[in-house]
Each structure stands twice: as structure tokens, then as C-alpha cells.
Design a protein around this nucleic acid. Structure first.
Length: 232
DNA sequence: GCGACAG
DNA sequence: ATCTTGTCGC
């Protein structure tokens, strides 16, 4: 990954190669920590964040952020090439190795079955799945109104994900497996991570972290980093 | 030709 | 993603 695709054609070729390394398997039997990943934008800059939470009580175990630039223009279906470099950089700064990656986007609920969650899963070889806020591909029957109700997301005749209601009477989310992960485990984890809000606590924590980074690129607040003189 | 199209 | 007012509810 020292080189990076510069055109949609190159990105498609890279996607095809990486896709061959995608592993379809049950999720981890034991889960201690889960990581949420997200990116925020500000003009031509971006802030990426990874926040590791304790799966038992959802407390924060570790946080890593990185400032960067989009690595590719936004093209539906090639979205991962835009954020992956910065997210990998943030993952490398973690001191805690998460058991599962939870991405803000789709896993195999993608035109070529290789969305952001699948992409990051393959590159790190960590179990991963995606929780998207809107649909990319697939059709689905209306979802029940209660929390936990779900409807299969079907594309080209195959089930690629689930439309899951995480809060009663609130717009559902799109869950799909990424790497070393099965759909039922992904849905079960998503429900456990949404005790109060529509989106997983992992996503919410990462969203806050990367937005905060864009507002204060100084690094103040992290242990071991001194605030610039005059800040106080 | 007219939509649809993760973030 | 981001741009944005008012409005409903706890």
C-alpha cells in the first residue's frame, strides 16, 4: 500500500485483487474490545479517528486520531480509497489491539462485495463489519417498527446485509459483514452497541474524536502532549 | 434519455 | 461528507 490508485480504473483493479483475500467466517467467539472508525472533513483536509471501547461496559479503552488528506475523490463503490490510508495510520497508533472493527459504511453490501469494512478487514486481517446510514445497493421489504426488527438486504439475488432497526420507530441502519464476520454476529453486536441511540456507540465516539481533531489539531488533551503557551 | 449513487 | 431554521420532546 505504498502506492495508491490514482484513477477509477486502477482502484477497480486493486479492489479486485484485495477482494480475493476476503474471508467469510463466523465472528470471534470471545470479544473483549471493539473499535469504531470514522472520518470528518474540512475543506481539503480530513481527520480520521479510531476509538476502542470495552465490549462489556462500552467504556473507552484507547483513542487514536490522525490529520490528513483524502486519498481519492469520492466515487460511489470506490469510497474506501478515500479514507483507508488515514484510517490505517490511526489504527497503527493504537496501543490496544481491537477484536473487531466497526466501520461507518458498508461491508459486502457493495456492488462488487468489497466496501470499506471489507477493505479494512482484509488489510488488517481483523474481523470487521459495516454499519451504514443509507443504502448503496440492494432491495428490502419494510422493516418492523420495533428495536431489533430486521429485513434482509438483497442484491442480485443474494443476501448481502440486513436493514436493522436499532431504535423503535427511528430510521433503520444497514449492517453487512466485512472480514472474518457473519451477518448475525454483526447484527447482534450492533444491537448491543446501540442501547440508546440509532448509531453504535463506537461510531458516535469516533465521530466525536475526529470532529474534535479538526477543531483542535494541537493535540492538547492527550497524555504526554503539552498545550502551546498562551492556550491558558 | 432518466434516475441511483456508502461518506 | 457538509451546508442550514425551526420544531418537537424529555
Amino acid at each position: 500500500m505504498r502506492t495508491w490508485p490514482r484513477t477509477p480504473e486502477e482502484a477497480l483493479a486493486t479492489q479486485e485483487v484485495l477482494r480475493s483475500r476476503l474471508i467469510s467466517a463466523p465472528g470471534p467467539a470471545e470479544i473483549d474490545t471493539v473499535a469504531g472508525l470514522d472520518v470528518a472533513y474540512d475543506g481539503d483536509r480530513l481527520g480520521a479517528a479510531v476509538v476502542v471501547l470495552d465490549y462489556a461496559d462500552l467504556s473507552v479503552r484507547d483513542t487514536a486520531v490522525v490529520l490528513g488528506r483524502p486519498a481519492f475523490p469520492y466515487v460511489p463503490g470506490l469510497f474506501a480509497f478515500r479514507e483507508v490510508p488515514a484510517l490505517l495510520e490511526a489504527l497503527e497508533k493504537l496501543t490496544v489491539r481491537p477484536d473487531v472493527l466497526i466501520c461507518d459504511g458498508h461491508g459486502v453490501a457493495h456492488p462488487r462485495r468489497f466496501g470499506l469494512a471489507a477493505h479494512l478487514g482484509v488489510l488488517t486481517d481483523l474481523p470487521a463489519f459495516g454499519v451504514g446510514k443509507t443504502r448503496l445497493v440492494g432491495e428490502f421489504a419494510p422493516v418492523g417498527e420495533e428495536r431489533g426488527d430486521r429485513s434482509p438486504l438483497i442484491d442480485a439475488g443474494e443476501t448481502v446485509g440486513a436493514v436493522l432497526r436499532t431504535r423503535a420507530r427511528v430510521k433503520p441502519v444497514f449492517v453487512s459483514a466485512g472480514h472474518r464476520m457473519d451477518l448475525d454476529s454483526a447484527c447482534r453486536m450492533t444491537l448491543r452497541l446501540t442501547p440508546e441511540y440509532r448509531l453504535p456507540e463506537t461510531t458516535r465516539a469516533a465521530d466525536r474524536a475526529c470532529r474534535d481533531l479538526l477543531l483542535r489539531p494541537s493535540g492538547a488533551g492527550r497524555p504526554g502532549t503539552l498545550s502551546p503557551k498562551g492556550t491558558h
